[in-house]
Design a protein around this nucleic acid. Structure first.
Lengths: 108, 108
DNA sequence: TCGATCCTTCTAGAAAGTTAGAATTATAGG
DNA sequence: CCTATAATTCTAACTTTCTAGAAGGATCGA
């Protein structure tokens, strides 16, 4: 994980609509959700949703699998863990102990 | 922590320059860094730096303290921890265990 | 092959972000 | 009060993002 990748993933999550998409996918669990179901849940235009999903896919936070005519979207937990690890390691080093849990978690 | 706050903080960090600013402040430790030192380290225009710092201050990821003519900037570890906690709780719930460490960490 | 469903891509306009030079404010020292 | 230092705000140009209607591509059943 380098700083450019981390920034790109943070930027992808740094939009309320996309963060909501991602959170909805996480709550959907391992089976994921088709794009159409996401559209119904979030009530946004199909083209808008498609663009947002593409951004999340581009930074590897979401993966897609085609099943016939529907496209299943799933949250990529490994990528999120990588991002959380980067932030804990690179951006939360605190000798006062305020960030100790996260930092020690990775070191342990 | 609500989704709007989380998105705003993620957006603030989702720019390579700002993420670099934040990381530099983290590495500077509890004593922080004056804006001028940040400018020398990062080699960007003063006005540009000021705008980026303001964004980080607005979302409470960075705090500032005036000492005579210099403004000391410090990373706000508590805010970063709050953000990491939100992501672990709301966006990394994985029954397969891939995200279990982060989720259990907060619950414990 | 035709039609239906599902989703993406095209296109375009409005809105917001990024950058930095110039001017301005804030603070302190002489 | 004047000057110097430190940083912000103003301004403007450029780029990017966001949104969504319209058109197009992919897949499958009949």
């Amino acid at each position: 994980m380098n700083i450019e990748t981390a920034a790109a993933q943070l930027e992808a999550l740094g939009n309320p609509t996309r963060l909501n998409i991602y959170r909805t996918l996480v709550r959907a669990g391992g089976s994921g959700l088709p794009v159409g179901k996401l559209q119904l849940k979030l009530d946004i235009a199909a083209s808008t949703l498609s663009h947002h999903i593409r951004k999340l896919v581009e930074v590897n936070l979401v993966s897609q699998e085609r099943q016939a005519t529907t496209l299943i979207c799933r949250a990529n937990y490994a990528s999120m863990n990588g991002l959380l690890g980067y932030l804990a390691d690179e951006c939360c080093i605190d000798e006062t102990g305020a960030c100790a849990p996260a930092a020690s978690e990775v070191a342990a």
